[in-house]
Write a protein that binds this DNA or RNA. Structure first.
Lengths: 121, 121
DNA sequence: ACAGGTGTATTAACTGTAATAATACACATA
DNA sequence: TATGTGTATTATTACAGTTAATACACCTGT
């Protein structure tokens, strides 16, 4: 379901949060679907259970999952999450564009950079 | 010339690199213009000289400044730097757009996010 | 030559974060 | 009752960032 990129400088728990987040947002993991248990995922990824727990704690704090003690962690399926993430990405586009404009990049170049992504996705 | 944002989670030396970089790219610091000395800037920002030195070391490695022992650090004014940074920003736009497309954001929304920045810059 | 400003290098120490390891406890379910 | 689940705690290791204190070499104005 998830793999750790050793070349990625970000902490392991953060990588897990980010990848799980995308799996939920893309609908690969559906509402109320169970995620791998802390201990299972720890074995699969060959890392410490505490690190998984930390990632799950973050995901719960962000509202992506909910926990049932004795049973496991499940995707919340909250609808607001997708909208929040869309806004996050659009804000990032605006911020980067602002920086680009400030050093002379044209609107045409920026829209072309957007279109370059459309083909790949 | 530069200030440190204590709320910024990034390391101090990295903030200095990024801000100095922008000052050079925007032409605020001109070719062969002298940057504040290691000790001076350390006093101004109330941080350790070693931290400034690390930032200047990075800037030199990136080609933004050159060092003359006994005299100081100076902006290189290399022309390629601007083009490299433009490419960096455009790549970031493409990457973020790709992610956005993958969760259903439309081309229209993205171009609007670009345009939103044009007014501010 | 000298003083003062410059970059550079080194070593030690402190702090915070990430990650591991080893346990223990509480809850759910077959 | 046994097993799988989340949760909590403590200790330890490793590393990055930062500070501190020095020391050395170079440049320049007096």
């Amino acid at each position: 379901m998830i793999y750790i990129d050793v070349k990625d400088s970000r902490p392991i728990y953060e990588q897990i949060v980010e990848k799980t987040r995308m799996l939920i947002l893309r609908g690969v993991i559906r509402k109320d679907e169970k995620l791998p248990s802390v201990r299972n995922m720890a074995v699969e990824l060959s890392i410490n259970p505490n690190t998984i727990q930390r990632a799950y704690g973050e995901l719960e704090r962000l509202g992506y999952i909910y926990t049932v003690k004795g049973k496991g962690n499940f995707a919340s399926g909250k609808e607001s999450l997708l909208m929040e993430y869309r806004k996050e990405l659009l804000d990032k586009i605006t911020q980067t564009s602002e920086l680009a404009f400030s050093i002379g990049v044209t609107e045409k170049e920026l829209t072309e950079a957007v279109l370059a992504a459309e083909g790949r996705a």
